[in-house]
Design a protein around this nucleic acid. Structure first.
Length: 897
RNA sequence: GGGCGGAUAGCUCAGUUGGUUAGAGCACCUCGCUUACACCGAGGGGGUCCACGGUUCGAGCCCGUGCCCGCCCACCA
């Protein structure tokens, strides 16, 4: 540690520091701690997955929140876990099995297949957990939970049983969304509506009693006609009044179905007559229920025609359609056909076209659970940020439908329901010995598993040991923040709120922070087919976790997508380098200071302390409001602009430097040390590495346990900081009282900027030395007295204050507010360029002056604008007048000379 | 069909209750290897803040209309 490499080496440092943190158990939360708790549970990544950019964003933002709170003395718990992700994982393993062993899950059988999935899970989980460590996540690994762990399983069974007993969960036969490829029921949310180009066919239905008359219906799915149990028309439709009550023959069959009247039918659409297929259309199902129509299922679980299909049995939907259209045409029953755009439901997972299917499933009465969940957000118990999402939340929750929770899969929580031979249902937390109704000992458990989101919905408390009354549950429920992507607001967040309130009796968290989507630098969604996917691990490998984290935070703007670009990441990699080198420089000169002893009489010191104070205020304010991007930009500009560009440059003069060394002044180190602490939640690795090298630092083991800098130390009073001395906290308080920079600093920096700028405009070699004389009001000249850094920063070989104004014809004049700087013409300028510059500047100033004058003569403005605004314009006008006057004289001289 | 969000410099975006001269990063141009850092430093150019109308002493910001993008929800077959 003694030598200081001239570059930060993330590949060497990051794993070493993470091991150190884990060994020291820095991230472990103690439920017995007297500290105020601050809890976030990590949205559990899918066990089959690898870490993608969305995870990277989630864990960066959550780690920033958690690390800051930990540094503020909270009992911070960030709880890790992984999700079994039922349908997704089962699909991946099935596919793998098919590929490697050419077997289906049915070939293996349930038990063997599940063994395979568990193997897969073990292997995959290690990968993703390692990746979370690579990102620097300060997760409490001692509490790692998997959604199929026994504890979670108990919570699931408990919830299922309680909801069942309260009739909020029930078994029902109903038309549900069925995926013919995954062979399972889905919830409404798992249906992706996609617009697709289809056709609208007209099909003639002959009247039973008068085969010469036909009723023409329009349909996009002719193959479903085998399932028709009625034809419907609008009751107000005069065209069809005579048909209502009669029967028509379903083409290609011998069945007669009634013509019914229902106002659902849109007279203007198609032919005005609608075939009703209640077994395979959600709307038709509703109509059928109203009219007590029979329901026919004509497709099997793979959406092939079943025994109801007659000659078409065994055909797929597409094949059947093709064949039936041919047959209809042959019988002269096919009318016109036209193109038609319609929405078709696809499986969220496998993209297959879904088929509504009549079946028995378990449902949760979501509408009842939603009521208190809506209320919790409405009364502010739960805040959703950005606030715009609340409206979306309400809209969905108020129109929520029964949630189908059973899945015909093997991988997941088995439904805790048992059936006896007589068909009685027994629902229980523990496997029952006998039927609850008839005492039969011959019980068979329900074959189905639960929707993954059912167990996810219990996550904020199932991870803490619920339903047992654990210490963790007492200490850490409710959580503080739920940070996740808006894409799972309904899938997950809403369900956690409903189930948390129902099961525990308290909202599961206080704040929901919905982060945006990560896209590429052109706002395109990252996708494999587009080839624009950025792999976070590749980036971490290349530049380290810190720059990636900082980029994600600095781009995370409320309600906007995060656009990730390589140049941005590179820029923040450079930032890491900048901090590294600034620390190296400061350590080189002040590495031997032993105690915090900042010379507060020195105005350069005061200035940087003041800037730091403002920075602390801004950052804390920003982070309190989840404005990660503001906080990131603020610390960036403090370190780079204030500290490196100004402060370090200011103290680099020999006088300043030797005085500081002699006095063992610790300001440079101390300010930087605080800046590192401010930065730590964003860039944990480089900050810890540098902090460990600092001679002056809080006495803790890790920067993660040092106090987070604040402009309001009262807030941290009384907190324990792993051995931090209270003295430092009180010192921080004192610094809040500094006034903004002294006259010497403000005057000096203004002079430096003006002269540098003029040099730049002239294209002069910045290294050439110039002679400078400054005249102006005494207070300004006094302020510049002794500011030898001004001389250094403008590269002045001589620097004269006051005295007679030099010959205007031989000197270039630079107006600096009320001051004038003179530089011998030969040092700076050729006359023609100077004249042009001056004229341009003058024109700008005159224009502005005119506008100011106009404002001040306007009665409305003077009469109605607040005083401070008027005063501002007046001051500006006075200054402008003085500058215009000076420059006009200067211009005159130039032209004459 | 409903709802939400966006449009500001070449690119990606800030701009917190309307207030003096609209900012940043990157890109670009000029100059500089001044011993922390060329992953750097100093300077510069570049904007009718989508259009039109309104409110106001004053609008990038508030209101209305229009146009163009993106997303979510939705049972017109």
């Amino acid at each position: 540690m003694s030598e200081f490499p001239n570059q930060f080496e993330p590949t060497e440092v990051e794993p070493r520091l993470y091991q150190f943190w884990e060994k020291e158990q820095i991230f472990k939360a103690d439920p017995a701690s007297p500290k105020e708790p601050y809890v976030i549970v990590l949205p559990p990544p899918n066990v089959t997955g690898v870490l993608h950019m969305g995870h990277a964003l989630t864990c960066t933002l959550e780690d920033i929140l958690i690390r800051r709170k930990r540094m503020q003395g909270y009992n911070a718990l960030w709880l890790p876990g992984t999700d079994h992700a039922g349908i997704a994982t089962q699909m991946v393993v099935e596919r793998h099995l098919q590929k490697t062993e050419k077997k289906s899950r049915h070939d293996l059988g349930r038990e063997k297949f599940l063994e395979k999935v568990w193997e897969w899970k073990e292997q995959s989980q290690t990968t993703i957990l390692g990746q979370l460590r690579l990102m620097g996540c300060s997760l409490d690994w001692t509490r790692l939970t998997f959604t199929l762990d026994e504890g979670v399983s108990l919570a699931v069974r408990e919830t299922f049983t309680r909801l069942y007993n309260e009739k909020l969960l029930y078994k029902d036969t109903s038309l549900i969304q069925w995926c013919p490829r995954c062979h399972t029921a889905l919830s409404d949310l798992e249906v992706k509506a996609k617009e697709s180009k289809g056709k609208l066919w007209q099909i003639k239905y002959r009247l039973k009693n008068d085969p010469n008359k036909v009723l023409v219906v329009a349909t996009t799915r002719p193959e479903t006609l085998l399932g028709d149990t009625a034809v419907a028309v609008n009751p107000d439709d005069d065209r069809f009044k005579a048909f209502v009550g009669q029967e028509v023959m379903v083409p290609l069959t011998n069945r007669a179905v009634p013509v019914i009247a229902d106002s659902y039918v849109d007279m203007a659409f198609g032919t005005g007559a609608l075939k009703i297929t209640p077994g395979h259309d959600m709307n038709d199902y509703q109509v059928a229920k109203r009219h007590n129509l029979p329901i026919l299922s004509i497709f099997d679980e793979s959406a092939k025609l079943n025994q109801e299909g007659g000659k078409y049995q065994g055909l797929t939907r597409e094949k059947a359609r093709e064949q039936m259209l041919l047959d209809l045409a042959e019988q002269g029953l096919l009318g016109e056909e036209k193109d038609h755009l319609n929405n078709v439901g696809h499986c969220d997972r496998c993209d297959a076209i879904l088929e509504p299917r009549l079946s028995q499933q378990w449902f949760v009465d979501a509408a009842t659970l939603a009521k208190p969940a809506i209320e919790a957000v409405r009364n502010g118990e739960i805040k959703i940020l950005p606030k715009e999402w609340e409206k979306t939340y309400f809209l969905w929750m108020e129109n929520i439908r029964p949630w189908c929770v059973s899945r015909q899969l093997w991988w997941g929580h088995r439904i805790p329901a048992w059936y006896c031979p007589d068909g009685h249902v027994t629902v229980a937390v523990e496997t029952p010995k006998a039927c609850g109704t008839c005492q039969s000992a011959s019980l068979k458990q329900d074959e189905d598993v639960l929707d993954t989101w059912f167990s996810s919905g219990l996550w904020p408390f199932s991870t803490l040991g619920w339903p047992k009354e654990t210490a963790d549950m007492k200490a850490f429920y409710p959580n503080q923040v739920m940070e996740t992507g808006f894409d799972i607001l309904f899938f997950w967040v809403a369900r956690m709120i409903m189930l948390g309130i129902k099961m525990v009796g308290k909202s599961p968290f206080h704040t929901v922070y919905l982060h945006p989507m990560v896209r590429d630098e052109h706002g395109q969604k990252m996708s494999k087919t587009k080839g624009n996917v950025k792999d976070p691990l590749e980036i971490v490998n290349k530049v380290g976790a810190d720059p990636l984290r900082f980029t994600l935070a600095a781009m995370a703007v409320h309600g906007r997508d995060v656009l990730l670009s390589d140049t941005r990441i590179e820029g923040y990699r450079n930032f890491v380098n900048k901090i590294w080198n600034a620390t190296r420089f400061v350590m080189m000169h002040f590495g031997d200071v032993k105690e915090a002893k900042s010379d507060m009489g020195n105005d350069v010191n005061q200035w940087i302390w003041t800037r730091l104070e403002t920075c602390k205020k801004d950052i804390n304010l920003a982070l309190d409001q989840y404005r990660f991007f503001d906080a990131a930009n603020r610390i960036y500009s403090f370190v780079w602009n204030d500290y490196c560009d100004w402060y370090i440059e200011l103290i680099k003069t020999e006088n300043e430097m030797s005085a500081r060394k002699a006095a063992k002044d610790s300001t440079a180190i101390e300010v930087l040390e605080e800046a590192l602490r401010l930065l730590h939640p964003f860039m944990p690795f480089v900050t810890e590495e540098l902090w460990q090298r600092m001679p002056i630092k809080a006495q803790g083991r890790s920067i993660s346990l040092a106090p987070y800098p604040t402009d309001d130390p009262e807030k941290l009073a009384g907190r324990d900081f792993d051995g931090l001395s209270v003295r430092r906290a009180s010192q921080e308080m004192g610094r809040g009282e500094f006034q903004a920079g002294s006259d010497r600093i403000t005057t000096g920096t203004t002079v430096v900027e003006a002269i540098r700028s003029r040099r730049g405009e002239c294209g002069l070699n910045p290294n050439s030395e110039i002679r400078v004389q400054i005249v102006g009001p005494k207070k300004n000249l006094d302020a510049l007295q002794g500011a030898d850094w001004v001389k250094r920063l403008i590269r002045a070989s001589s620097f004269t204050l006051g005295g007679d104004k030099p010959d205007p014809k031989k000197n270039v004049l630079i107006a600096i507010g009320e001051m004038e700087a003179f530089v011998p013409r030969e040092d700076l300028m050729d006359v023609k360029v100077e004249i042009a510059k001056t004229e341009k500047e003058l024109a700008g100033l005159i224009g502005e002056l005119e506008r100011a004058k106009q404002k001040l003569t306007s009665h409305e403005f003077v009469g109605r604008a607040p005083e401070n605004v008027i005063k501002g314009v007046q001051d500006r006008k006075t200054l402008l007048e003085k500058q215009v006057e000076t420059l006009q004289a200067h211009l005159k001289n130039l032209k004459e000379g």
